[in-house]
Amino acid sequence: MGEDLAFWWGYLTNGKHLQWYASFRFTIMAALFGGVLALTFGLLGAMALRSRFAVLRGIGTVYVSMVRGIPDVLFFLFFPLAFEQGVEWFVSMSVCGPDSTPNAGWPPCREANWLLSTPEYLTLACVSLGIIYGAFTANVINGAMRAVPRGQLEAARAFGMSDMQVLTRIHIRQMWIYALPGLSNVWMLLIKATSLLSLLQIADIVWWAGQLGSPNFLPQAGLVHGDWRWAYFIALFVFYILVTLLSERVFRRLTAWARRGMPVEA
């Protein structure tokens, strides 16, 4: 029994497993920065939707409705590629000349090639998560802004506040209680989307689970273990459920905080 425990402890703390545990930082960073960016894009998108100018309203509407018709994984793959190619195109304008190494396909010459590594991919992943879930957030915030009682805004205007003051002091502050249920939904979506990082060649928790669980054969020792991937993926399945559970708790707290002094029963 003691030997077994020692074996499992040793197995679960070997170098590769420690690397697996360390790779959770990518998932957590993607969720946090992606969430902050999604909130930013969401506020901007909601402002565009509610703007006085028809062009801005049009842009906002297209931005908000695109996520309804097109899968998020397509955007998740497309934005980093498009950004990379845009930078390469920009660089190629100045770098590529008659004496540079020509290249079939893309980029136009070898010198303009931009090789991305994990930090760049992670940044781009955060931005694409922000853009995709910003569209959902914009919609939630737009609905919440409309739900703020008109009387509150009229009272603020009657006190002589300027449009900007009404927006920042009353409208946005009172909107949170109506937005929080929707924002909680979007956050859950975003957490689940962080499992896609391995599609952008980031060695994240999913990639490591696949690597660690594959049948392990060493020439000196023979077959160390068979196919254990199922155990690793069940572990990830449970991990994500626990994260959801934790997020729900946090959002319950946030709702209680946003509701203080507000005449709503949400």
Binding site: M188, I191, K192, A193, T194, S195, L196, V206, A209, G210, G213, D227, R229, W230, Y232, F233, I234, L236, F237, Y240, I241, T244, L245
Partner: peptide
Amino acid sequence: IYAFRGSPLFIQFFMFYSIMLA
């Protein structure tokens, strides 16, 4: 309902496939 709504479909695919493999 909670488990399958609270975890990513991406992981669920891997999970089912690896269980089938095992």
